[in-house]
Design a protein around this nucleic acid. Structure first.
Length: 587
RNA sequence: GCUCACGUAGCUCAGUCGGUAGAGCACAUCCUUGGUAAGGAUGAGGUCACCGGUUCAAUCCCGGUCGUGAGCUCCA
């Protein structure tokens, strides 16, 4: 099953449509290029398109740009906007354009023109002294751009290939109004505050060490969240008719040769030698699951068989790709393989969607789906693809789920449906995926015995819902900004005695809470209540129970809810009742 | 893996134009027993990522390695 990709979709809707935003940002990128040209004569231009949330421009220059340069460039951009230079489109003949850009020393532009199809019109946009090869369209003049901001600096290969020279890329964004830009920058700040790497340390959930790049260590508090996630997952899978398995982390070479990983995925795998035989650390769970299926003969009456596995896989990701818990080298997929009759594909797919829907909804995630179809290099007959893709599509249509189609983006072994969920600040994350697999049943010669007593090939779906448990955990940390709902909170309640004479009562309250199955602590340090509250707030503990003379006398607790403050006094019994209910409802 | 930047106490960071370092928070001890987001005092804590080089002397300069960050690339 493929690695999930991180996508962000944080663009607030402010432009009339995507086209307008694109034109606006594209003009912004020309202004950027013009400013850089003015400040750094001799710079060579790469490309400068509009992208989601902004724009960038690539430059080749003999010196490295530094962050301070961005400010200078921004000021120059402001000047260009002030000058309100008209953007003039001019069409050129191919030869004329080549000569024009060659004359300017713009080697990359020359290369671009050479690669343009013979029949397209070549257009150049002029703004004052500046000219750039560009299909357009553009705003009528530079003064139309109002709020612009350069954001970052990075290296990028010319035309995205590491064989080509590395250019310097400047990222920026622009908006119709200053206020929108400020809002956007504020969202970036907000995202930074929620960064799971920062919160993970502050809340003592997990850590990363030089000793294990890409191999995160889960701390006791992180482990509580993870265990809660997994038991929720197990409960739902049991109800949905899945059986759980566990397959080994290390299996021998022959298996990986058979599955095709040895040939196609070796670059990303870890190996070891045991008793003079080659073994591999699994990068995926499917082969193990296939072995379980093959271990006995199945009748068509047994199908579908749904084998689920929280499987720990290792993949040697590029060092530059590692990122907190989001992109690691060892992670747990909440995998499942469904072995079924070809006629059961639709029904099983629908059931998986039900399950995914139920799981996401508990976290308050909205989501959208995308259907990916047959790629160029595909395995299996076109008819098979046609049938399978239609099955997936029909399921989505029948449920009235809107979906985008990604032509040719399917895995080469089968079409798939991807789930992109939207977090509390509007970013989207691809987590769940449902993939039909035509390859594994063939490679492993899977069969079931049909009504006719003959061997038949089962269809196989593999699917994940969280994707990677570690990554889903990271998404949740950012989604909740560390303030987990009660059922997930590492610490659910903390007892705060006002003075030392209340310690005995606090201890009784704590014991009762623990007995009731509430994750609780008592803060018995000789500090003021205000101090203890502050600390509990920072730890994002959902309930703080202040106990002093009044409470000790009446057998009550003074409840304070995280962030919202004093909630009044409750008898200990009624508080526990309410908390247990809140935990059970996972609300 | 590639480009650029960065790596100083558990955390966030300052600092030394080359003479072995400092703050706040956290931690420990003591005083304080205080009712809803920081009471006070004292103290401990660092081979300045690692390995080499230059130098009388390197945390600082140079090279390499490892790690981290932003991108790129890759992603069955």
């Amino acid at each position: 099953m493929g690695e999930v990709a991180l996508t962000t979709d944080a663009s607030p809707v402010i432009f009339a449509d995507e086209k307008e935003a694109e034109v606006y940002r594209h003009t912004s990128s020309h202004i950027l290029a013009q400013a850089v040209k003015r400040l750094f004569p001799g710079v060579k231009l790469g490309i400068g398109p509009a992208i989601k949330d902004g724009f960038y421009y690539d430059f080749s220059y003999h010196d490295s740009f530094v962050p301070e340069d961005l400010e200078k460039i921004e000021s120059e951009m402001a000047r260009i906007i002030e000058e309100d230079l008209p953007m003039v489109r001019r069409e050129m003949e191919r030869e004329e354009a080549l000569a024009f850009f060659a004359g300017l020393g713009e080697v990359f532009k020359v290369e671009l023109i050479r690669d343009l199809p013979a029949d397209v019109a070549i257009s150049v946009y002029h703004t004052g002294e500046f000219a750039d090869l560009c299909a357009g369209p553009h705003l009528s003049s530079t003064g139309k751009v109002r709020a612009v901001k350069l954001l970052s600096l990075a290296g990028a290969y010319w035309r995205g290939s590491e064989k080509n020279p590395m250019l310097q890329r400047i990222y920026g964004t622009s908006f119709l109004h200053r206020k929108q830009l400020d809002e956007y920058l504020h969202r970036l700040e907000e995202a930074k505050k929620r960064d799971h790497r920062k919160l993970g340390r502050e809340l003592d959930l997990f850590s990363l060490h030089d000793e294990g790049p890409g191999f995160p260590l889960l701390h006791p508090r992180g482990m509580i969240v993870r265990n809660e996630l997994e038991s929720f997952w197990r409960e739902e899978h049991r109800l949905a008719g899945y059986q759980e398995i566990k397959t080994p982390v290390i299996l021998n070479r022959a298996l990986w040769e058979r599955s095709g990983h040895w040939d196609h995925y070796r670059e990303n795998m870890y190996f070891t030698r045991i008793d003079e035989q080659d073994f591999a650390v699994k990068p995926m769970n499917c082969p193990g699951s296939m072995l379980v299926y093959k271990d006995k003969i199945h009748s068509y009456r047994d199908l579908p068989i749904r084998l689920a596995e929280l499987g720990l896989v290792h993949r040697h990701e590029l060092s530059g790709a590692l990122h907190g818990l989001m992109r690691v080298r060892a992670f747990t997929q909440d995998d499942a393989h469904i072995f079924m009759l070809p006629s059961q594909i639709k029904e099983e797919t629908a059931k998986i969607i039900d399950l995914i829907d139920r799981l996401y909804q508990v976290f308050g995630f909205d989501y959208h789906v995308e259907l990916s179809t047959r790629p160029e290099k595909a395995m299996g007959s076109p008819e098979m693809w046609e049938t399978a893709t239609r099955a997936l599509q029909e399921v989505l249509l029948e449920r009235g789920m809107p979906f985008a189609i990604n032509e040719g983006e399917g895995a080469f072994y089968g079409p798939k449906i991807d789930f992109h969920l939207r977090d509390s600040i509007g970013r989207t994350w691809q987590c769940g995926t449902i993939q039909l697999d035509f390859q594994m049943p063939e490679k492993f010669d899977l069969f079931y015995v049909g009504e006719d007593g003959q061997k038949h090939r089962p269809a196989v779906i593999h699917r994940v819902i969280f994707g990677s448990v570690e990554r889903f955990f990271a998404v949740l940390i950012e989604h909740y900004a560390g303030a987990f709902p009660l059922w997930l909170a590492p610490l659910q309640a903390i007892v705060l005695p006002v003075a030392e004479r209340h310690h005995a009562y606090a201890a009784r309250v704590l014991a009762t809470l623990l007995e009731a199955g509430v994750r609780a602590e008592a803060d018995l340090r000789s500090e003021k209540v205000g101090y203890k509250i502050r600390e509990a707030e920072l730890r994002k503990v959902p309930y703080m129970l202040v106990v002093g003379d009044k409470e000790a006398e009446t057998g009550q607790v003074a409840v304070r809810r995280r962030r919202t403050g004093d909630a009044g006094a409750f008898s200990l019994a009624s508080f526990i009742g309410r908390v247990k209910e809140e935990i059970a409802s996972r609300s």
